[in-house]
Deep mutational scan, measured.
Amino acid sequence: MEVRTIKVFTTVDNINLHTQVVDMSMTYGQQFGPTYLDGADVTKIKPHNSHEGKTFYVLPNDDTLRVEAFEYYHTTDPSFLGRYMSALNHTKKWKYPQVNGLTSIKWADNNCYLATALLTLQQIELKFNPPALQDAYYRARAGEAANFCALILAYCNKTVGELGDVRETMSYLFQHANLDSCKRVLNVVCKTCGQQQTTLKGVEAVMYMGTLSYEQFKKGVQIPCTCGKQATKYLVQQESPFVMMSAPPAQYELKHGTFTCASEYTGNYQCGHYKHITSKETLYCIDGALLTKSSEYKGPITDVFYKENSYTTTIK
Rank of each mutant, 00 (worst) to 15 (best):
E2D: 15
V3I: 15
V3Q: 12
R4I: 09
K7G: 13
V8R: 05
V8S: 06
F9Y: 12
T10V: 11
T10Q: 12
T11W: 06
N16K: 08
N16R: 08
L17P: 06
H18M: 10
H18R: 12
H18I: 12
Q20I: 15
D23L: 13
T27E: 15
T27A: 15
G29D: 10
Q30M: 07
Q31Y: 13
F32D: 04
F32M: 12
G33A: 05
G33W: 05
P34Q: 14
T35M: 10
Y36R: 05
L37Y: 13
D38P: 08
D38S: 13
G39R: 06
A40F: 11
V42Y: 15
V42K: 10
T43G: 15
T43S: 13
K46C: 12
K46Q: 15
H48Q: 09
S50R: 12
H51I: 05
H51C: 08
E52N: 13
E52S: 12
G53F: 11
K54C: 13
K54I: 15
K54N: 15
V58R: 08
N61A: 14
D62A: 09
E68S: 09
E68I: 07
E71S: 07
Y72Q: 10
Y73L: 04
H74P: 02
H74N: 07
H74E: 07
T76C: 13
T76W: 09
D77Q: 07
D77W: 03
P78G: 07
P78W: 08
P78T: 11
S79G: 14
S79A: 15
F80P: 04
L81D: 02
S86D: 11
A87Q: 06
A87T: 05
A87G: 07
T91D: 03
W94E: 01
Y96N: 01
Y96C: 03
Q98P: 06
V99A: 07
N100T: 09
N100S: 10
G101F: 03
S104L: 06
I105K: 02
I105V: 06
W107Y: 07
W107K: 03
A108S: 10
A108I: 07
D109W: 03
D109Y: 04
N111A: 03
C112D: 04
C112Y: 03
C112S: 03
Y113E: 02
Y113M: 03
L114V: 08
A117F: 03
A117W: 02
A117G: 05
L118Y: 06
L119Q: 02
T120D: 03
E125S: 11
K127G: 08
P131T: 05
P131D: 02
P131F: 02
A132R: 04
L133R: 01
Y137W: 12
R141G: 09
R141P: 05
R141K: 11
E144C: 14
E144V: 08
E144H: 10
E144R: 10
E144L: 09
A146R: 06
F148T: 03
C149D: 03
A150M: 01
L151F: 05
L151Y: 05
L151I: 05
L153G: 04
Y155G: 00
T159H: 15
G161Y: 03
G161W: 02
E162D: 15
G164C: 02
D165K: 04
V166H: 06
R167H: 05
S171K: 09
Y172V: 11
Y172L: 12
Q175L: 08
H176S: 06
A177D: 02
N178M: 10
N178W: 05
L179R: 03
C182N: 01
K183T: 10
R184E: 03
R184V: 01
V185P: 01
V185K: 07
V185Y: 04
V185M: 06
V185E: 05
L186W: 11
L186N: 05
N187Y: 08
N187S: 13
V189I: 14
V189E: 14
T192W: 11
C193Q: 02
C193S: 02
Q197Y: 09
T198H: 12
L200F: 15
L200A: 10
L200D: 12
K201G: 11
G202K: 06
E204K: 10
A205M: 00
V206H: 01
Y208C: 09
L212R: 02
L212M: 05
S213I: 01
Y214T: 02
E215W: 05
G220A: 06
Q222D: 06
Q222A: 12
I223R: 06
I223G: 13
C225P: 01
T226I: 15
K229R: 09
K229S: 14
Q230A: 12
A231C: 14
T232A: 06
T232N: 09
K233I: 15
Y234T: 10
Y234E: 05
Q237R: 11
Q238M: 00
Q238C: 01
E239Y: 11
S240K: 01
F242R: 01
V243E: 01
M244A: 00
P248T: 08
A250D: 09
A250T: 12
Y252P: 00
E253C: 09
H256Q: 15
T258H: 15
F259S: 00
T260R: 06
T260L: 15
T260C: 15
C261E: 04
A262V: 02
S263I: 06
Y265N: 02
Y265M: 00
G267I: 05
N268I: 06
N268C: 10
C271F: 13
G272N: 00
G272Y: 01
H273E: 00
H276E: 00
T278P: 00
K280H: 08
T282Y: 13
L283F: 10
I286K: 00
D287Q: 00
D287C: 00
D287W: 02
G288F: 00
A289N: 13
L291W: 13
L291E: 06
K293W: 09
E296R: 12
K298H: 15
G299L: 01
P300Y: 14
I301M: 04
T302R: 00
T302S: 07
T302G: 00
D303S: 04
V304H: 00
F305G: 01
Y306I: 02
K307C: 09
K307T: 07
E308A: 08
N309F: 15
N309Q: 14
N309E: 05
S310A: 10
Y311F: 08
T314M: 14
I315W: 06
I315M: 15
K316Y: 14
